[in-house]
Amino acid sequence: MKIDAVPEPNLATLREVFNRLRHQSGQSYDDLAEASGLSRRTLINIGTGTTHGDLRTWLILARTWSKSMDELLAPVWE
């Protein structure tokens, strides 16, 4: 029996997800930092693709934007 290969997530998509949701929310980096408690530098790094962020960061962003983790992360599998 052949097992299908598990696809790799496209983590570069996280930058696009982050930027789309930040713009939709109308939040500047400063606004988002204040609302989430995350550092402005962390948010800028995600927005520019310098880093993907960690699980804790994405959980906080999901809560800040009232989104589920599924909503935030689904695009990495497309």
Rank of each mutant, 00 (worst) to 15 (best):
residue 55 L to C: 11
residue 47 G to K: 01
residue 24 Q to I: 03
residue 12 A to T: 08
residue 17 V to K: 01
residue 58 W to V: 06
residue 10 N to D: 15
residue 39 S to V: 05
residue 69 M to G: 09
residue 57 T to N: 08
residue 20 R to A: 14
residue 20 R to Q: 14
residue 51 T to N: 09
residue 12 A to N: 09
residue 53 G to H: 08
residue 44 I to Q: 15
residue 2 K to I: 12
residue 63 R to M: 04
residue 64 T to D: 03
residue 64 T to N: 01
residue 72 L to F: 06
residue 70 D to W: 10
residue 46 I to M: 02
residue 48 T to I: 10
residue 5 A to L: 14
residue 33 A to I: 02
residue 21 L to Q: 14
residue 22 R to T: 00
residue 11 L to Y: 11
residue 77 W to R: 09
residue 56 R to H: 15
residue 16 E to M: 09
residue 6 V to G: 00
residue 25 S to P: 04
residue 2 K to D: 10
residue 40 R to T: 09
residue 39 S to H: 10
residue 73 L to E: 04
residue 22 R to M: 06
residue 29 Y to D: 05
residue 69 M to R: 08
residue 73 L to H: 09
residue 9 P to N: 03
residue 72 L to E: 05
residue 5 A to M: 10
residue 48 T to S: 14
residue 21 L to C: 04
residue 58 W to G: 06
residue 21 L to T: 00
residue 43 L to I: 02
residue 30 D to L: 14
residue 52 H to T: 14
residue 7 P to R: 02
residue 28 S to A: 05
residue 77 W to L: 11
residue 39 S to K: 07
residue 70 D to V: 10
residue 74 A to M: 11
residue 41 R to E: 12
residue 8 E to I: 09
residue 15 R to H: 04
residue 43 L to M: 06
residue 7 P to V: 02
residue 64 T to Q: 05
residue 57 T to Y: 09
residue 78 E to F: 06
residue 11 L to F: 11
residue 12 A to R: 08
residue 14 L to Y: 00
residue 55 L to A: 15
residue 61 L to C: 06
residue 63 R to A: 13
residue 16 E to Y: 08
residue 62 A to S: 10
residue 61 L to W: 01
residue 67 K to G: 00
residue 43 L to H: 00
residue 42 T to Q: 13
residue 38 L to C: 06
residue 52 H to Y: 14
residue 19 N to K: 06
residue 77 W to N: 09
residue 39 S to L: 05
residue 4 D to H: 13
residue 47 G to C: 02
residue 64 T to L: 02
residue 5 A to V: 12
residue 58 W to Q: 06
residue 65 W to T: 03
residue 62 A to M: 08
residue 76 V to F: 05
residue 74 A to T: 13
residue 61 L to T: 01
residue 64 T to I: 02
residue 33 A to T: 04
residue 1 M to G: 15
residue 62 A to N: 07
residue 19 N to G: 00
residue 16 E to L: 14
residue 26 G to F: 07
residue 51 T to K: 07
residue 34 E to Q: 15
